[in-house]
Simulated scan of single mutants.
Amino acid sequence: MRIGLVCPYSFDAFGGVQLHVRDLAEELIRRGHEVSVLAPAEDGTPVPDYVVPSGRSVPIPYNGSVARLNFGPVVGGRVRRWVDQGGFDLLHLHEPFIPSLSMLALWVADGPVVGTFHTSMERSRALRAISPVVVPMLEKITGRIAVSAEARRTLVQHLGGDAVVVPNGVYVDRFATAEPDPRWTGEPGRPTVAFLGRLDEPRKGLPILAEAVDDVLRAVPGARFLIAGRGEAAEERTLLARHGEAVRFLGGISDEEKARLFRSADVYVAPQTGGESFGIVLVEAMSAGALVVAADLPAFQAVLDGGTAGRLFRRGDAASLARTLVDVLTDPERARPVRSRGQEVVRRYDWSAVTTRILDVYDMVVTTARTPVREDPRSRTVYGRLRAAAGERPWA
């Protein structure tokens, strides 16, 4: 099968959606499919051979973070050429209603289309504002996937329709077999606690963790905190500087270093305050054998099987986080079954299982389609795009 994947977010700065698209593409290629990925990326950005860069992105604040998107008439022309020349049996669009490449591809293409929805949010004025235009376009997406129950809830609540839940994937064995790093490995009486996330995104929860450190170190004086991720976080650095070597800021780390960090740490902490639809980093940490302590967000509760595969604390409550960390660090025997359960749970998220479920959706969509992917003739004019948004078929 020849598959076109579209990523709306830039490959210049990787996040969860970009990693999902990259890993899915590589697993599909490994299984013998032909794959082309269209994604924002600047000319000098190193990308895999299967990625077609669409040009420079624009940073836009979105859902408590910054999304790097790609849009405009020039980009639209690139999308049109990619669709027209691709000869795809199927298009798989990620976040198709974010104003970027996936939405442009949905306008341009007609035929077998799968859409994956990654976002979770409580309220969205932007989605409410654009829903009269984008909701009719749902008809062009014949197979809909949500990466979690929370992402599905957001789709149903804001745009209507429904989706099958297929989670994000992880190459479990890459984390399980990573080599621990002696600099980060815990010892008896000196356990290590790891955090990874954008330091300057408040929703990633670094301020919550920073507030909890004092109480943890009073109870476990030998504990060490390893904080990885890009961003300044000047206030948190100043607050934590008095703890000396007990707190280390590692800066940005590579995928290989991430796996080694998770293999080395006793505990991975996820203090996020909201805006999470899944929690792929929790699965990665569990795959490496770390015990996960996470905020009780609905998405995190789902990944941790309601707390049987990890420990949960009250979202935004530094005292609750500190108590939970002290509990798992001072009683490792009690925490052992939770850690073991986490290593069992992650197998359901391995790409070998996730890709099979995605291919089941592909087969359903292709089997019921009339033709392969082709250019939607309405997309060449403003009037035609309005007709497409109104849900009229190309032959109408």
Rank of each mutant, 00 (worst) to 15 (best):
G342T: 11
A126M: 13
P59D: 04
R68Y: 15
G279F: 04
G391Q: 06
V373I: 14
Q18C: 12
L209Q: 09
G252I: 00
A146D: 07
P59N: 03
L155Y: 06
A353D: 09
V135H: 02
S54K: 06
I98F: 14
A210F: 13
M286S: 08
Y349Q: 05
A13Y: 12
R68P: 07
V303H: 02
V172W: 07
D296H: 03
P182N: 06
Q272N: 15
P99T: 06
G87H: 04
R125V: 13
V147C: 06
V75E: 11
L19A: 15
R323A: 14
S10K: 12
R385M: 10
T192F: 02
E284D: 05
V166T: 04
S120I: 00
A194F: 00
F11Q: 14
G143D: 08
E211S: 14
P48V: 04
L291G: 10
L297H: 09
L312N: 10
R248F: 01
K204E: 04
G244N: 07
R30C: 08
R387P: 01
P298A: 04
E95S: 15
G307C: 10
D363P: 00
P372L: 03
S277V: 08
E139K: 15
D317R: 09
G231F: 14
A234S: 11
G160P: 01
A176P: 09
L93W: 08
S54M: 15
T154C: 02
P182T: 10
V21H: 08
V113P: 05
F117Q: 08
G279E: 02
F195I: 10
D43C: 10
W395V: 03
R153E: 15
S287L: 11
R198L: 12
T308R: 14
V74F: 12
D89H: 12
V35C: 07
A126H: 14
T367E: 15
E187F: 00
W395Q: 11
E257F: 08
